[in-house]
Amino acid sequence: MTAMVKAEGVHKSFGAIEVLKGIDLEVAPREVFCLIGPSGSGKSTFLRCINHLEKINVGRLYVDGDLVGYRQQGNRLYELRDREVAAQRRDIGMVFQRFNLFPHMTAVENVMEAPVQVKRESKAVARERALKLLDRVGLADKAGNYPAQLSGGQQQRVAIARALAMEPKLMLFDEPTSALDPELVGDVLDVMRDLAESGMTMIVVTHEMGFAREVGDALVFMDDGVVVETGHPREVLTNPQHERTKSFLSKVL
């Protein structure tokens, strides 16, 4: 079975600052893979490399067996054209910390946009599916609302529905609950839990240790651009092996 995501010695620098210093990891299909670590540890950057929002400098990154952002022929790497990168991204859903809904479109229009524009679905079909997805995230009655008329938690659930509308094989979550009021976090996590139960492969950058422990199949602790510790969430969270993991967990738990 090919790994859904496979990273081999991934390095990423912004100018002189090296943010990722050699990441090796594997995410199996249907796995919920949690990334934790202090801010600035490179976990969000790594997530953004997976759908090529950031270009890696060293190493190889594969999604479902395909090299991300490049084509390899023999020993040579060829950069993909924008169009080809876009095609790769279709199968990878992403949910952002700050939602990034399109403010000039209603909730249902947000969800319909990519299927209509990218997959050339008819508007009627896309709308019907979008309404079903909004129902799935518990927002059937908010379909006609603009993002500014929704709470943060509602916006994030629309954003999840929007990503699901492309029927991705992999979902990336970049601190999906960090910008939310505490009482709204639960609704978003419930939706993510449902999604995990449906068998979606998910990579979740999060500070929600409870979610990681309950739902996660694997957990990685990153610090300063390297993977410090990997394991099953319950083990890593209750019995961390490394000093840095221990000191981080003692601060957040």
Partner: peptide, 19 residues
């Protein structure tokens, strides 16, 4: 973030600009 969200959905450069 708007451009990123649009790109993450697989929309092309031109579609992102126009839509």
């Amino acid at each position: 973030g708007q451009t990123e969200a649009s790109h993450a959905l697989g929309m092309s450069q031109a579609k992102t600009l126009r839509r």
